[in-house]
Design a protein around this nucleic acid. Structure first.
Lengths: 161, 161
DNA sequence: GTACTTTTACTCGGATACCGTCTGTCCGAGTAATTATGG
DNA sequence: CCATAATTACTCGGACAGACGGTATCCGAGTAAAAGTAC
């Protein structure tokens, strides 16, 4: 049970896109290069974000990706949901049923409600933080130069329609 | 990111052991039979619970397993920790470092503290519930007969020293 | 100069392979109570 | 009857095979802007 690297990658992809000027798009190659991640896999993750309506894409030359919502309206949980297919952390395996020799319709798993409750607590923390609030955490004096360098890359590679 | 079946199996194993009389042990075979789980894999999980000091085992003929603590002192989170080797759900992959082109020692992952906070919230729910409180949830009138049958199996197969 | 075609640079989405973790099996070794054996 | 050896029924722990999901690659198809071409 481990958080997948794809979630982290998707989060920072969105942070990058949140730095785009208005009405501009950024090609997938620029994203994977800046993040230092696999080109093809990054494109696959981008498609998931598109399917979840977090970002939108335009094909063809001068194409690329851009945020579909405001950064403050995209929570980290939204990103988690978009990049992982199955939603709930826990699904019962029917061991209690076997142990007590219950009927088929008596699917009573005592752990279910507990796990659900735990997952909701976990989820609530991830809902509070957004791409915007995460970006604010990065913009500290220490990283000012670095962020300006990223902003410059975006200015070079982004395409404004 | 999915809760493994081994955790559920371990939980119900401990519930079963909590029904043992004082100073009695239950062989591994009886456990796997009652739970309807793989014999060899159950033994492997039992070993993990022994290593975590949740249960203790005696070898040789008339050997078996028994709880090492009171059921109310074993939380579901204890069981989770015992059956899964790595503890934290999330560990940063250094994507932000690549994205901002940071130095090696500047390992700053903004997601880390958020994920830690979320995990603590999740963990706190699992700490509240114990093997004893879970057992109480099962002992409802509807399941009375079933539980008596399990108790009878234990009386037959357990070994009192 | 306008209409049409070709090129270019992107995204889209399925098929596939790889790899790590969880699940499950196998086997030899250790251990303790019981039973058998020899005096 | 007592001491010792063999048997029995368990656990211990490592090695290893299979299943499954996440990671990653590849390829053909679609799309839209730009460039080229014909009249």
């Amino acid at each position: 049970m481990k958080m997948k690297a794809g979630v982290e990658q998707s989060v920072y992809t969105l942070v990058l896109l949140s730095m785009l000027p208005e009405k501009a798009v950024l090609p997938g190659d620029a994203i994977s290069q800046q993040l230092g991640t696999s080109r093809t896999y990054t494109l696959k993750l981008l498609r998931k974000l598109v399917n979840a309506d977090l970002i939108s894409s335009t094909a063809g030359i001068k194409g690329g990706y851009k945020l579909n919502k405001k950064p403050e309206d995209i929570s980290i949980y939204d990103v988690y949901l978009a990049t992982t297919d199955n939603q709930s952390l826990y699904s019962p395996n029917g061991i209690l049923k076997d142990m007590l020799n219950l009927n088929e319709d008596d699917q009573c798993c005592m752990l279910m409600e507990l796990m659900d409750e735990a997952e909701i607590a976990w989820k609530n923390v991830l809902i509070r933080e957004t791409i915007a609030s995460l970006y604010e955490r990065i913009t500290i004096p220490k990283f000012q130069e670095k962020i300006e360098a990223v902003q410059q890359m975006i200015n070079e590679k982004s395409i404004i329609n």
